[in-house]
Design a protein around this nucleic acid. Structure first.
Lengths: 210, 210, 210, 210
DNA sequence: TATGAATGAGTTTTCATTCAT
DNA sequence: TATGAATGAAAACTCATTCAT
């Protein structure tokens, strides 16, 4: 399910000693930090390695170039996202439809709220490296998890589960992103969020088989 | 309503002669072209001016730096978008709610379909220049236009028009973008689009005052 | 006759203004100088441009990369060599065979003596850039020139002029290079040179038709 | 006679155990291999040690730096060359002059033919390390061997054996190298080679004391 | 003694910006 | 006013060498 990274974007080697693992971890962390504090156009290899407390050379021991590093960081981030959603879905297996919808919207909303900057940062990374295969893989994991959850709802059956599921997710993800992109008062944000919740649930309800 | 560009992003001088206007036009066009064919990382001042058929020096007569150029190009693009929406809204003044909703969704969808690349291109520009004030101004014009339209619907009154309008737009814009970002079959795209149409209208209907 | 440089080794643009021509000239000169004084492994773009009194950027306006520069320098040098030989040959058209042989050996010897370092420098360049097509083109011009000259000798006809000519040149060039590569006393060098002269002439004489 | 390597180019330690000898051997072999397959600009210490199957650290146990390694490899190669010539000369002790000349030319020619790449590789090494003392020592061994051989010819005495010998070798080595440097048809190469053979012998004959 | 992770000076190359013509 | 040659700071990346384990 996890996509095999294209060869030019692959890491050069994996750490064998504990020291190396720590180094790699520091590099990852530093990349995110720089992305958040300095922005994607200021993300230079020198800056990242400086922040990580290692030399540039060390970075290049693990990644053949900047792109490969960014690819790896994105991969790790998206994995976390997918795992979060999968966990949430499992926890709501067999729950009533309304609870499923609300939980998902809330979970996604909260995740994004907490990682607003990280999300934005990673999106910008996509400019320099083509991470669409990673994003697609992540989406498919999420789709599978939510589909399985919806399918387990005791109070709802759908004529076309796949379509309903896909629409639900597309609207949810798109709207949340849209909301966060704009500068809006917290108040407005919250109120639109509530409306979204209602809208999503209403959509699900209306799609049920009589 | 149109945002006054921050001084450091302002153009150096306004064209006074026909020749100058033509030059500016060529520079604009070239910027978009380069963005589309070469991508945002290849957008250099030399490339743009070459494509525009003028010398770099000339370009710097009009814009003090690259950012000012990109800002101006974005501004012009967003103006076009806002104008299109405004026109559509005026044309549907006093129409039934269902027609308003469908027309808006369809208009936005079509606009995006036709300019998929241009939209993406401009989004990438946002990396290098902060155009959020422009985007915000554009959004406010659109909000005003759609609010006025919805307010003129003979078959619907809303308790909180502003909130309903904002939600409607946020969902519409976000979802469409989400849809276009993912690689999806045309079939899926169309079907989710149809679902979105239904969902939006249903939301408006449900928000009406008894 | 002059080889068309492979596209990736071509110059970026030719100078249009007098200033630009002077700049290019300085870059050429500096390249040779650095090669001679610092050696080929110390030939860096920074060093060359510094020595030329221009900035690195300027160098890159004319050549897309170091290799292209080196290729151009080699080309120019080899052209000079070929021209020198061609001139010498024309001047000895119709002369007696002995004079031809002696003049050629002496001319080549002198040329090398004067440019000992330059020659060595350029040979080393061949490591980083493939200049064999240039060398081959140069050799062919030389071969043509000497063949024409030998053919005009009033006192000698050859059964296989091409072979004799080729052998003569191969021995001459190889031996001179060999001589200059070794550290030898000037005395030894001169004496071996004289022997070479004799040897070459004797070879030509022995190859004549009855 | 063998040159004492300048201290900064000396190996760090001599192998005392069989294992160490094997390691050294592997490093030598790897150096040549990398030189031949990857070219001199790709000859890095990491590459060599990887190919040799040892770690960089180990390599630095034996050679204080890259130059020392290259120096040692060159030394070994030139020793082989010198030994080959010495053996050939001993085998032709007391033979007729014509046989001596032909054997030498043929032996050298064959050696070079077989090791075309190795020879070229080693020449390139000379760029980074000054191996002229090694080359000189090798030449002197060769000179001594051939001089002794020529001196033993029953059918020839020379007024100035040293000069004749030096000229003979310089012409032979230079011409062969020249021949191999140019791209030439095998046919041409062979024919010029034959001419060279004749030319050399004729030179020796002409230099004999009546 | 062997390992290989880490170092960082040094190299090539780019590109926004200036300014003499 | 327009031109385009020149600038040079800054970026990505390499590789000989060291040293803790």
């Amino acid at each position: 399910m996890a996509p095999v990274p294209p060869p030019q974007l692959s890491a050069r080697k994996s750490p064998r000693q504990a020291r190396a693992t720590a180094t790699l971890e520091a590099i990852f962390e530093a990349t995110i930090q720089v992305l958040l504090t300095d922005g994607p156009t200021r993300l230079t290899t020198t800056r990242v390695s400086a922040r990580a407390g290692v030399s540039v050379g060390t970075m290049y021991q693990y990644y053949p170039h900047k792109q490969a590093l960014l690819y790896a960081v994105t991969e790790r981030y998206l994995n976390t996202v997918a795992e979060t959603v999968e966990r949430t879905c499992l926890q709501n297996h067999g729950a009533p439809l309304a609870q499923m919808s609300d939980t998902l919207v809330k979970a996604y909303w909260d995740a994004k709220t907490m990682q607003r900057n990280a999300t934005r940062a990673l999106y910008l990374v996509a400019l320099e490296v083509n991470t669409s295969d990673l994003a697609e893989a992540c989406m498919q994991r999420i789709e599978a998890a939510t589909a399985a959850m919806f399918d387990s709802a005791p109070d709802a059956k759908f004529a076309d589960l796949a379509l309903v599921n896909l629409t639900f997710l597309t609207v949810l993800f798109g709207t949340v992103r849209s909301l966060f992109t704009r500068k809006m008062t917290e108040e407005s944000e919250r109120r639109v969020g509530d409306e979204l919740s209602v809208m999503c649930l209403r959509y699900l309800e209306a799609s049920k088989i009589a």
